[in-house]
Every structure is written in structure tokens, then in C-alpha cells.
């Protein structure tokens, strides 16, 4: 397993309520997972823990076999860069769309110019070149979500985590993203999608993980 939870518990700082309790779940590469559950059930929290952003309050998260949170910082960063999380409410940096898409590449040490070219190539591939020079504060909700997703995809992560990725997308954009997701999966990326859309879950999921009230239901 790429990411594996072992009896994970989580509550937010300053709160006493357990948001996740005793969760055991795993995500592997080359698979499409849909994490399914009602509002407030804990999907986002689970995804952020899986993406090595939140540290569990109790329990362990193994990342490619390593007990992630007991590793030194220098080792952690290398593992964390294999998995990319996309927020359900897209957050974009100030500046242009191409800067946003190039950001992850630049912090990985890619030359600025090369990173920007890569960003443009990806936009072109989707017929979205017109977005490249746009300022992010002038984007529609759907465009913003699209940019956030592309910013993750360009990094070619081993695991791509999408939190409610289709909320604002029209059907043509949705199809484009689906195509990309399937292409990534063919190339070995694991994709984890949180959603409360049953049809989506049935349509593309190879594994469905059902979350209810902070617990992962056992498949039966």
C-alpha cells in the first residue's frame, strides 16, 4: 500500500469531538478510489490525513512503508511530494494562472522558465490557453477549480487526492478532467476522489470507501 492508516483517530485542535475514530484504510497506486459519505462525515479530514497534511492525534499513517510522522523532516518532504491534495474550495495564489500551475514544479527545483512552459503545455492540451495569463482573482468558480486541479496534475503525483472536484465544473470540463484522471491512472497514479455523488462513485470507482460519522464502514 502507498498510504495506509493504522487505527487513526483525529480531532481538531481545541475541540473534544473525535472527527475520525479508529480508521483503518489504505490507498494504492494505479487505482481509483471514491470516498463517499454525507456532509460532515469526515471525508475531507480523512483525505488531508492521507495526504500527509494533518497529523493523526492517535494511530499511525504509513507512507510507502514508512511510519510517516516518526520520520525526520528531510525524509518526510520526499514522501509528501509523492501525494498531492486538491482542496474542495479551491485556493489560488495571487498572480497568474500559469504561475499557479507552475508553482509546485518550481519549489521542486525546476527552473522557472521550464516550469512555466510546462504549465502552458498542459493548458494547451486542454484547449485552455486563454487562461494562462489571467489573474486568479478574476476567475469564475469553475475556472478556479480547474486551475487547482491542473496545478496538482502537472506534478504527476503517485497519488492524486481530489476533494469534491466536480462541484463547480460544467459537463464538458468535467469530462476533460475525467479523461485526465483516467490517463493518470493508466500511467500508474492512484486517484482518491471524495464525493457525495453516488453516480460518480459507481461510474469510475474501483474501490468505494464509505465514511459515516467519522468511521469507515467495512465493506460487506
Amino acid at each position: 500500500m502507498a498510504i495506509e492508516f493504522s487505527n487513526v483517530w483525529y480531532r481538531y485542535p481545541g475541540s473534544r469531538k473525535w472527527v475520525l475514530s479508529s480508521v483503518d484504510v489504505g490507498f494504492d497506486e494505479s487505482r481509483i478510489y471514491v470516498v463517499f459519505g454525507p456532509n460532515g462525515s469526515g471525508k475531507t479530514t480523512l483525505l488531508k490525513i492521507a495526504s500527509l497534511i494533518y497529523r493523526p492525534v492517535k494511530g499511525k499513517v504509513f507512507a510507502w512503508g514508512y511510519d510517516y510522522w516518526s520520520l525526520p523532516n528531510s525524509k518526510r518532504i520526499e514522501l509528501r511530494r509523492r501525494i498531492v491534495y486538491v482542496h474542495e474550495k479551491p485556493v489560488l495564489f495571487k498572480g497568474t494562472v500559469e504561475y499557479n500551475i507552475a508553482y509546485g514544479l518550481m519549489i521542486r527545483g525546476l527552473d522557472r522558465h521550464e516550469a512555466l512552459v510546462k504549465a502552458r503545455v498542459l493548458l494547451e492540451k486542454l484547449g485552455l490557453s486563454y487562461l494562462a495569463d489571467k489573474k486568479t482573482n478574476g476567475l469564475s468558480a469553475g475556472e478556479a477549480q480547474l486551475v487547482a486541479i491542473l496545478r496538482a496534475i502537472v506534478l504527476e503525483p503517485r497519488i492524486l487526492v481530489l476533494d469534491e472536484p466536480f462541484a463547480h465544473l460544467d459537463s464538458s470540463k468535467r469530462d476533460k478532467i475525467m479523461e485526465l484522471v483516467l490517463e493518470l491512472r493508466e500511467n500508474g497514479t492512484g486517484v482518491v476522489i471524495a464525493s457525495h455523488d453516488v453516480f460518480l462513485a459507481k461510474a469510475i470507482a474501483e474501490r468505494v470507501i464509505v465514511v459515516e460519522n467519522g468511521k469507515v464502514l467495512k465493506p460487506d
Binding site: I77, R81, H87, K94, I107, L155
Partner: peptide, 24 residues
């Protein structure tokens, strides 16, 4: 906190996340 976390999701080191948070 928002941009710091965002930077982490994209693979920033703690220092890079701090820089980007300051920029924002």
C-alpha cells in the same frame, strides 16, 4: 494558515510554505 497549508499540499518544505504565506 490557508496558504501555508496549500503550499504543503503542493510539496513545499516548511520554509517554502512560510515564504509563500508571507507573499500572500
Amino acid at each position: 494558515s490557508t496558504y501555508g497549508e496549500l503550499a504543503l499540499t503542493l510539496g513545499a518544505t516548511d520554509k517554502q510554505a512560510m515564504m509563500v504565506a508571507l507573499r500572500e
